[in-house]
Design a binder for these strands. Structure first.
Lengths: 168, 168
DNA sequence: CATTTAACTTCGTTTTTCAAAGCTAAATTC
DNA sequence: GAATTTAGCTTTGAAAAACGAAGTTAAATG
């Protein structure tokens, strides 16, 4: 996970620096399913101890998981989602949604997500307008802010101008 | 990107098989910013030609990008987002949103996303209830469907029972 | 027709990732 | 309280991936 030139200065790149390897998101998926212990993660994912150890340590360092001693066993540790970790929920839900839609399983549904308060299935992840209406990529135009990486900013502005000229 | 045992049978894992490496999401980010040509991707990302070539071919094979001859230059090819590719928009927006919130840049905003129809900034990505209200991870309980990987299903059901016993 | 350009391939090297085995300290069993 | 098991790492040699540089092909340019 070395930092490469040109891969910073954008929210996507910054997030991928934290969870953009092949294991972190699967570890976090399990964390969202209530997994907390080293051996429970390892049992689920067929991941080697060295990699799991490394990934957990990194996620802790990045503030996504919190490591605390297990209350019932002095050897064991619990890894729990922090507020920042919980805030990755839309990422996981949107990944799950895409997989369900574009890589469906002929055997049927994989995961049903139910709103606890009502017992109803949730609608899923969406990009929303200020008014709360769902938006597609075509409905949105990006604008470079002051902190955007310069080469990306140029790209974004070119794209924005092109969008302005085409049909809204 | 070898398929590992136990990393299938879940929407998240299926999606990560397509875009879960270090480059694909950055390539797609640029595609959403209007980049279409091999050399334009390469200029933006500091990626080697061999890896870029491989990733683009994979994304085409997976149905996320479409490769077509460039209309203005017989040598060149254009890589454009397919419907499936456009449908990854919530993934990218939620990644961007997390990066902006938890890895802010002191210099200010990076990317502003504007709804084209209204000119207003968008609200962003969210997980929604059936009624359209935003939900956090704590508001949702997962339920295993018939196609969920068996070991994950066990986990999910355990977690669901635990949730039922705790405060809603 | 010689040169440049777009988009790859190939190749040898460096970097990263991996699985398997070993380690340590706490808990459990006898 | 010695022996064994367990949780959670480290270490290590091997495998995989990514890298840059050079080579390839076919179209465009001059």
């Amino acid at each position: 996970m070395t930092v490469r030139p040109g891969l910073t200065g954008c929210g996507v790149a910054e997030t991928l620096k934290v969870i953009g390897d092949r294991w972190s998101l699967l570890i976090l998926r399990n964390a969202f399913h209530g997994v907390r212990r080293f051996d429970a993660f390892q049992e689920q994912l067929s991941i080697s101890t060295s990699v799991l150890s490394d990934r957990l340590a990194r996620l802790v360092r990045e503030g996504v998981l919190e490591r605390r001693p297990a209350p019932d066993d002095g050897r064991a540790a619990e890894y729990r989602l922090t507020e920042a970790g919980l805030d990755l929920y839309p990422v996981l839900i949107s990944l799950n949604q895409w997989g369900d839609r574009w890589r469906p399983d002929p055997a049927g549904e994989r995961l049903r997500l139910i709103e606890r308060a009502t017992g109803q299935p949730i609608r899923g992840a969406a990009v929303l307008s200020e008014a709360g209406a769902p938006l597609t990529a075509r409905d949105v135009a990006p604008e470079a802010g002051p902190a955007l990486a310069p080469d990306l900013a140029e790209l974004v502005e070119t794209h924005r101008k092109r969008l302005l000229k085409s049909a809204p």
